[in-house]
Structures are given as structure tokens and as C-alpha cells.
Nucleic acid binder design. Sequence first.
DNA 1: GTCCCTGCAAATCCTTTGCACTCCT
DNA 2: AGGAGTGCAAAGGATTTGCAGGGAC
Lengths: 131, 131
Amino acid sequence: MKQLKYSRQRESIKACLMARHDHPTADAIYASIREEFPNISLGTVYRNLNLLVELGEIQKLRCGDGADHFDADTRPHYHFMCRECGCIEDLPMEISQEINDLAQEHVHGKIDSHITYFYGVCENCMKKKTS
Amino acid sequence: MKQLKYSRQRESIKACLMARHDHPTADAIYASIREEFPNISLGTVYRNLNLLVELGEIQKLRCGDGADHFDADTRPHYHFMCRECGCIEDLPMEISQEINDLAQEHVHGKIDSHITYFYGVCENCMKKKTS
DNA sequence: GTCCCTGCAAATCCTTTGCACTCCT
DNA sequence: AGGAGTGCAAAGGATTTGCAGGGAC
């Protein structure tokens, strides 16, 4: 365990992530942070995001669009991603333990968790289609 | 809709994928195919895999290990991935429609599907640990 | 002959890393 | 002072793409 030192950049990254709820990518966070720290580098953003994930202070989402997204809400919860605009929404519902148990009966090994992403079309994109 | 022409390479890629059940990456398929077509290029493998996915003849899996995996079984089904060795196993159980319906109540949009990956330790890796 | 498909290499996207320097403690 | 954190740029892995030549129809 190496000891941790304070860094304004890391604080700013975490604050930025807590302030927004759109599950930004590293690059989007980089763009935001640049307003406060014009010299911050993308590498630093990645390093700190990964560090915060290790510390359990944020979580990383892989919805399948190529880039990792980050979420300041570390409670396990489901996500919904819009196929059209790529936006990500939190689902305020419990993680199903049942489905883990059910799956356990069908697998040669020990399941400890599962990750689920829901896909479809968000309200905004549906509106655009009808108009 | 562009029309499709026969290609030995594409047939071979599909045959290879149908013959194995380990959900290989593009690179692993490339290595296999090379035995039959020593001159095939990785680009061709990717192009054909993506084409087959579009045609609905195979499916792409993104388990979060960085590389895409491919599956000749196009029926929707769950997967289990071992955290230690990275192997992927099919789960012979029905996809839950219930969880879609449940999630639908909590989202601003229209859910059409979900993807779930289970994670844990496979039988082989558990054996290795006790021995 | 037409147009799709191929091999090759270069390019792209996202992420990580090496290094010299800076800032916490 | 010591070592973690930073900026920069280069490297890395996975995937895509442009192009000229080859093959299917």
C-alpha cells in the first residue's frame, strides 16, 4: 500500500464527476477540468480516474460504445443507454440477487457479481422521431 | 443494401467460429484461420466478423476485458466470465423478460433489451487454488 | 466488365507509460 | 529530503480504413 498525497487535480476531477450525472468519458472530464486547470494533461485525468476507481470512490462503466464512462455514484445500480444518442441514465432499482443465484445453478464456477446494461431509445430521441 | 459475394475467407471464419465454443477474439480467430489461409490479413478478419454480425449470423461480446469476443450462437443468452483466466462460458438459461419489464418502470425511454455478464471464478481456477 | 473482397500498411481511437520536473508532507 | 503527483509526448493494444490488385458473378 503506497501512501496517498493530496492533489488539487484529483480533487477537481472527483468534484467534477460528483457535480454531473451524465456519466462522462475521461475525455469529457478532461474538457471540463481544463477550464479550471488549463494545463492538466489527459494522462493525469486517466491516472486519477483509475486511482479513484481503485479506492472505491467512483466506478467505471463499460457500456460497449468503445470508451469507458465514469460514475461518482458507487452504489451498485443498473444503467440504461440510448442506442441513438448514447446517453446513459441511472436506474433507481435494486440489483437483483436472484438472478445471480439463478445463474449460479447453470455455471461451472462461483459467480460473485453481474453487470447489466439496458438498451433502447431515450425519451428525447423518441420525441425527435415523432416530430 | 449492397449485394453480397461469396468469399472463402468469410466461410472459413464462420466455420471456425461455429467449431469452437470458447468465444475467441478477432486475434484468436486470425491465428486459427492462418493455418488454412496463411496470407489472410487481420483487417479481413475484422471486416468479415463485423459483416457477419450485421447479417445476424454471429454476435459480438464485450465483457470488459478490452477486446471484443465473438460467438456463433446468435440466440440471446447470458455469459459467465472468469476473473482469473478470462475464459467465457455460456449459461444455458432463459433471458429474463421480467427484468426488462421491471427496469422499464424506472427509465425515461423505451427499453428493448439488456446485456448481462456474470463474473466470478471458474471451476478450473478454483481447483488450481486449492492444490 | 463490374463491383465486391482481399492483403497490406497506415491511420484512428482510447488508454497507458516513461521521464524529468514539481509539489505535498 | 523523499516520494507521490504532474505534464508532456511517445508507446500500446484493438480496431478501422484507404488503396491497388484479385476474384466472384
